[in-house]
């Protein structure tokens, strides 16, 4: 890297670019829908399993259980609905931002978090798409730094095209080249 054009004057911290005041872009709308569908499906499966246990003819359930199941069904259904709504709100809040030198990812309704990953520190990039993601043209971008697998920086639910673009941007970034 060349040091000739580099300056390092003292900067008042108020004039530094602010990580929290970036414009975060939302994830793909399809991601929110797919996630909602998956969640509803999961709760439905649980409910159906309970109903099957309740109605099946093969063995007699103990009577306290027999009595508890209807109210349990209602409780699970309402919990599932609430969690699904919460999930939708959470998914809509998720967003990512790209600056010249770093990537950021924002999430959380009650517990907000913003994670920022300098591109300079990126060791490798992965695109991940499971079967469901593939069907809806979605992909998630996973970025690995030396911080280890626990601290993988991931942006889920990107349109596949966008995810590829982002990966390309990172791979061709001058900071990565300087790192080599």
């Amino acid at each position: 890297m060349s040091t000739s054009s580099f300056s390092n004057e003292t900067i008042e911290s108020s004039s530094l670019p602010k990580a929290r005041e970036q414009r975060f872009l939302p994830l793909s709308p399809a991601y929110v829908k797919v996630n909602l569908l998956c969640r509803l499906l999961l709760w439905l499966v649980i409910l159906v399993a309970l109903v099957v246990v309740y109605w099946q003819p093969w063995f007699e359930l103990p009577s306290p259980m027999q009595k508890a199941i209807p109210s349990l069904l209602i409780a699970i259904a309402s919990l599932g609905l609430l969690l699904s709504v919460y999930g939708v709100i959470g998914d809509k809040i998720k967003g990512y931002a790209l600056r010249e030198h770093d990537l950021s990812y924002k999430s959380g309704v009650i517990f907000k978090s913003i994670i920022s990953q300098p591109i300079l520190r990126i060791q490798h990039v992965e695109l991940k798409h499971g079967p469901i993601d593939r069907h809806f043209g979605l992909a998630s971008l996973e970025v690995f730094s030396a911080g280890g697998a626990m601290h993988t920086f991931a942006i889920p639910g990107l349109p596949e095209e966008k995810a590829r673009e982002l990966r390309q941007y990172i791979l061709e970034h001058s900071d990565i080249a300087a790192n080599e």
Partner: peptide
Amino acid sequence: DALIDETLHQVESLK
């Protein structure tokens, strides 16, 4: 905010 902004700045500018 200041800690994070300063950290990102140092990492990215010092390289």
